[in-house]
Computed example of a mutant assay.
Amino acid sequence: MRIILLRHGQSLGNIDELAYCRIPDHTLPLTPSGEQEAIAAGPRVKALLGDAPVAVYVSPYVRTRATLRGLDLGAQAERVVAEPRLREQDWGNLQDPVQQEVLKHQRHAFGHFFFRLPNGESGADVDDRLAAFLTDLETRMAHPDHPDTALVVSHGLTIRLLCRRLFGWSIELFESLSNLETCEHRVLAHDGTRWHLDRPFVQWRASPDGETQD
């Protein structure tokens, strides 16, 4: 079994943080550069798939669905499931720019995993919903009618937390990892006993508890 994790292409929110103050997060579009990133990622994903079919699980946000369209997988995507549990961490509704800046500083000082955003989620909340998603996904992939490969098109923090949950990484290690770049991918492969990551995430510091991605 394999799971390909792909972050969405560059979105308006990646280049204009004030966009979150006037546009709902779930409707933020890709930028023209993000659209090109998605198109460029198509051949890379297809090379990983070969001729095999794939089951796609995509966050229902506009930017992730647009990224999937840009991949142009066609009939090779045997099934496409819009999966709300793969959405970005919820920061609440339209955000106030002053409060947004204050919250980012508080979140950085408090820790990204446990800090709860007013009217939104903590990283721990995202972790919980991803645990349920992974349980369902592993059950589905064990069925003989399901493709051996699943493609997950999601968001930076969501992908990090999915790996944290899957590998049992410590919270300290999770908070030491950087998000994937836009349209960057990782491949998870199961050898019959455990999952393996094709290459590590970039770390911006050593984990304070000494844990590594190995």
Results as ranks from 00 to 15, higher is better:
residue 86 L to I: 10
residue 152 V to E: 02
residue 163 C to F: 05
residue 60 P to K: 03
residue 137 L to V: 05
residue 76 Q to E: 06
residue 83 E to K: 11
residue 106 Q to M: 03
residue 188 L to A: 08
residue 169 W to M: 11
residue 100 Q to T: 12
residue 92 G to W: 13
residue 174 F to W: 08
residue 166 L to Q: 14
residue 54 V to D: 01
residue 129 R to D: 06
residue 148 D to Y: 09
residue 192 G to M: 01
residue 33 S to K: 09
residue 197 L to T: 04
residue 180 L to F: 06
residue 61 Y to D: 06
residue 11 S to P: 03
residue 197 L to H: 05
residue 101 E to V: 06
residue 163 C to W: 05
residue 61 Y to Q: 09
residue 139 T to A: 09
residue 213 Q to W: 02
residue 113 F to Y: 15
residue 35 E to F: 14
residue 169 W to S: 14
residue 57 Y to K: 04
residue 57 Y to D: 04
residue 104 K to T: 01
residue 138 E to A: 04
residue 165 R to F: 04
residue 145 D to V: 07
residue 183 C to F: 15
residue 32 P to E: 11
residue 124 A to C: 12
residue 171 I to N: 09
residue 194 R to V: 01
residue 114 F to M: 06
residue 183 C to K: 15
residue 127 D to R: 15
residue 173 L to R: 02
residue 173 L to D: 04
residue 56 V to Q: 01
residue 182 T to Q: 13
residue 164 R to Q: 13
residue 10 Q to L: 01
residue 140 R to S: 13
residue 205 R to M: 11
residue 91 W to C: 10
residue 28 L to H: 11
residue 76 Q to C: 06
residue 148 D to F: 07
residue 52 A to H: 12
residue 125 D to R: 00
residue 142 A to D: 09
residue 97 P to G: 02
residue 149 T to W: 13
residue 150 A to H: 02
residue 194 R to H: 14
residue 101 E to N: 10
residue 103 L to A: 00
residue 42 G to T: 04
residue 9 G to K: 11
residue 6 L to I: 13
residue 109 A to Y: 07
residue 79 R to P: 00
residue 189 A to M: 07
residue 148 D to P: 00
residue 27 T to G: 00
residue 132 A to H: 13
residue 167 F to N: 14
residue 38 A to N: 10
residue 68 L to Y: 07
residue 115 F to K: 03
residue 145 D to W: 08
residue 197 L to Q: 12
residue 4 I to C: 09
residue 61 Y to K: 15
residue 141 M to R: 12
residue 206 A to I: 00
residue 210 G to T: 03
residue 171 I to Y: 05
residue 144 P to T: 06
residue 12 L to K: 07
residue 98 V to K: 07
residue 23 I to D: 06
residue 171 I to H: 08
residue 44 R to H: 02
residue 179 N to Y: 03
residue 142 A to N: 03
residue 150 A to N: 06
residue 65 R to F: 02
residue 119 N to P: 00
residue 163 C to G: 04
residue 52 A to N: 09
residue 112 H to Q: 15
residue 41 A to W: 02
residue 17 E to P: 13
residue 175 E to H: 03
